[in-house]
Design a protein around this nucleic acid. Structure first.
Lengths: 191, 191
DNA sequence: TATATATGCGGAGCTATCCTCCGTTTAACA
DNA sequence: TGTTAAACGGAGGATAGCTCCGCATATATA
């Protein structure tokens, strides 16, 4: 009597709890500067088994993405905001500066942006897309308006910024990055 | 009769041999695309003990620097060449393009440039300095000539390029990077 | 050539991290 | 309350980094 009752069960509550618990635990650790925290240690702090952690997040990148997905979405949303309230080039410029602020505020987000911008980890596809879409829109708008040249690869702008911000060591990196924004903007202007 | 004869002995010939042998072995592996080759494996291929490898190079970065030091020096030298034969801005631009060519030709050099440009590894101090000096000179020359603005942090230009080149995955990165050079040059021009 | 010793060699083995596998437990549903 | 799919948990295999120290040998000296 093998019934075909493949009816889906509601996800187990403990599973959902642990999922969130792990994200919170990882976020806390990251914000405390423990970027290289062993995966095992995260499980220990969340009081779950290692197996559980790995079931929820197949690798470190997946966990980082989960932790910062909401942050990245916020960043993407502000692009829409800026596009509605500012002239095209200004919007683009402000957003790039905002991008830097994000890195500055939470250095931890850097690996996320790195992976996102390098596109190597397929896992970042989702979050990566919203950021890519955001800057594409900003650049397209500025191009249509005749403000900047059309042979720009939008993502390259972010790549350049991430490249500079990788230098977390150097104290003045933030100022450097902001100067770079202006150089890029000036360099992109339509002749 | 403890003589104070602290006379220095000539370095042992086998030591020098192994030093070079290890560099050659590593270079061969890197050029074969085996970037993540285990340290132990390098020792094995060179037919020396692991202890020997670690005595000569305290870590992976040190070995990479040794392998690419001569390449980096060549790159630095070409800056002098360009400075002597080209107008300031052209020299700077050409050198930046050359910089990209280097990354393109040997992707392996990327980690070296990365570490160099981020300045985190003290071990890159030596090689890093010659590159830094090279671009500083090129930029200074262009500034003196009144061609570009003076508030440029030369190293940031390289950082931006390295940032873009980190995207080895994307097929069109080289073209991207070269476009970026022109954007940067245009953006730096004195108004 | 013989001796002394500084210098370098080699690799067992300790540590740390990642990740898998599978027996046990538990929440959802009837 | 019983059945079962879903989730748990952690032992342990695999791999890489690195250290330590007894042994070997090249160099300098007699």
């Amino acid at each position: 009597m093998t019934e075909l009752k493949k009816a889906h069960r509601r996800p187990r509550s403990d599973g959902q709890r642990n999922h969130e618990l792990l994200i919170e635990t990882a976020k806390a650790a990251f914000h405390a500067g423990e970027i290289d925290i062993p995966f095992d240690e995260i499980a220990r702090r969340a009081s779950v088994g290692i197996g559980t952690l790995y079931r929820h997040f197949p690798n470190r990148d997946a966990l980082i993405e989960a932790v910062y997905r909401s942050e990245l979405e916020k960043l993407a949303n502000s692009a829409t905001q800026l596009a509605e309230t500012r002239p095209p080039v200004e919007a683009l410029r402000e957003w790039m500066l905002l991008f830097i602020d994000y890195i500055a505020a939470k250095q931890v987000i850097a690996p996320a942006l790195n992976a996102l911008v390098s596109g190597t980890s397929a896992l970042y596809a989702a979050s990566g897309e919203i950021i890519t879409t955001a800057i594409n829109a900003l650049v397209a708008r500025a191009v249509e308006n005749g403000d900047i040249r059309s042979n720009i690869e939008p993502l390259d702008l972010l790549r350049a910024l991430v490249g500079v911000s990788n230098v977390a060591a150097a104290p003045g990196w933030e100022a450097s990055a902001k100067r770079l924004v202006d150089i890029l903007i000036a360099g992109m202007r339509a002749v």
